[in-house]
Design a protein around this nucleic acid. Sequence first.
DNA 1: CATCAGGGCCCTG
DNA 2: CAGGGCCCTGAT
Length: 323
Amino acid sequence: MRTVHFGLSSTFSIIPSAPFNFDGTFHKPSHCPAPLEAWERGKYWQALRVGEKIYGLRIVNRGSRAKPRLGVSVFGRGKIGKKERDAIARELEWRFDLASDLREFDRLARRDGGLRPVFRRWRGTRDSSALGLYELLVVSILLQNATVRRTVQMMNALLERFGTRVSFDSKTLFAMWLPAAIHDVGEDELRKLRIGYRARFLKRVSDDFSRGVIDERSLRTLDENMARRELMKLYGVGPETARILLYPACHRATLLTHIAPWQQKIYSRLFYARRRVPARKIQGDLNRRYGRFATLAVNYVWEDLFWRREREPIPWLEREIRL
DNA sequence: CATCAGGGCCCTG
DNA sequence: CAGGGCCCTGAT
């Protein structure tokens, strides 16, 4: 594993569409904790790959919900040109959905009696993904049949072996490897990192990405059903992993199509204040209530719960998620 | 100590 | 379409 040290290369601003919620957009407490990003109130850091190149990024909130503005500092080796800067800005706009139009969802959320406080608290929050498609796919594969603790172990083992440690602005974060880096590594060598049968998935998927079998760019233009179908063609991607990848892949909210048993238990508490409601009923009810924004609505309520968990222990939740 | 299920997927029959 | 197998870990 190599370490790179970056200095300040460039700064610029991005104006997201209003309303915008900085912390809700840049910090997702329900996500699997990995040393790929860092957050504190109003500030966010990550190592970002654009093509082959790695940059260190610091993003600072310099606006408000109604008049949003982001201060972006790019860390790298030497100066960067306007073209490079624009490419970074465009990638950030995509990943964090900075230009998204949330007006219709806002109207819908305001009509929701019981959950209005939640929607109001997070108003302007984007569903977003700090990671690129391949990177997120790696995380999703490691989540399969594993607790979060174990996923983190596997992730760290892989990052130590294949990742790049990026040191900038007094932070040290990892950038993930490129798919091609796994190409020449044997499956048994991956297994030594204790990722088990997932080694086969990781290898096949890395090969597919490095050979360009899947095109992240064109996936971004597809509607949700086409995108889901494309994702499920990938080896190791079934209904649950496709659900996780769908938003990052094409940035469309959609109807709920799949509720896993552990999610069912949590949704039962959140939406019905009961222990266990049949998954089919939950899916039907939420789809009727929020229509094509169902996944986004669930996302707000879900993240709100995990924000609460960061402040105070939630015993019933701890039992369900077994960290 | 041993056994087993787990935030899923692929493959086989 | 149902069900076995896959790795490893932690719970029992």
